[in-house]
Simulated assay, not measured.
Amino acid sequence: MSFERTPCVYILASQRNGTLYVGVTSDLESRIHQHRTNAAGGFSKRYRVKRLVWFEVHEEMEPAIIREKQLKKWNRAWKLRLIKETNPQWHDLAEDFGFETLR
């Protein structure tokens, strides 16, 4: 499945139970590539937050942006529970799209 022009909200982690980053994009694969190559800069580069541990697809960008803002306001425990509900092993979901395994 291609995520080009598909609004997605996503959570990256530095490691299992590590630093979390919540973002929104219209091209998930390109955005993950930016995070992995440090082209995204900022928070994700500084804290080495590169593992895709959760994402949610939306039909339109506006609801995706609203959801991103909602998740950013959540406390850490709620975000961890959200990840564990769908990805209890903290598998790097980007590997399912062909990205290399992170060390």
Rank of each mutant, 00 (worst) to 15 (best):
T86L: 08
P88H: 07
D96L: 15
I11G: 02
P7T: 03
K73V: 02
T37R: 14
A77G: 01
S30C: 04
H58C: 02
A94M: 06
Q15A: 13
Q89H: 11
N87Q: 08
D96E: 12
E100R: 06
S30M: 08
Y10H: 08
F97L: 13
P63K: 11
L93K: 12
R48I: 10
N38Q: 11
L93E: 06
Y47K: 10
W78G: 06
T19Q: 11
E85Q: 14
Y10A: 11
V24S: 00
T37E: 13
A40H: 14
K50F: 13
S14I: 00
R48V: 04
R76Y: 11
F97V: 05
H91W: 09
V22S: 08
K50T: 14
L102P: 00
W54S: 03
Q70N: 09
C8H: 14
R48W: 08
S30G: 07
K73R: 14
T86S: 13
V24A: 05
L82V: 12
L28Q: 05
N17W: 13
L12I: 01
E62F: 10
I32E: 02
I11P: 00
Y47R: 05
Y47L: 06
E95G: 07
K50G: 08
G18L: 06
W74P: 01
L71E: 06
E95Q: 15
E4G: 02
R81S: 09
V57W: 00
I32A: 07
I11R: 02
Y10C: 08
E56D: 15
M61H: 10
R46T: 12
I66E: 14
M61Y: 07
R76E: 08
N38V: 07
G98I: 09
N17H: 15
L20G: 05
T37A: 08
E85D: 15
Y47E: 09
L52T: 03
T37Q: 14
L28S: 00
H35G: 13
E85P: 06
R16M: 11
F97Y: 10
V22N: 04
E56V: 00
R31W: 11
D27T: 06
A77K: 11
G18E: 00
E68M: 12
G23R: 02
K50V: 10
Y10K: 14
T19D: 03
G42Y: 15
F3M: 03
Q34H: 15
Q34I: 05
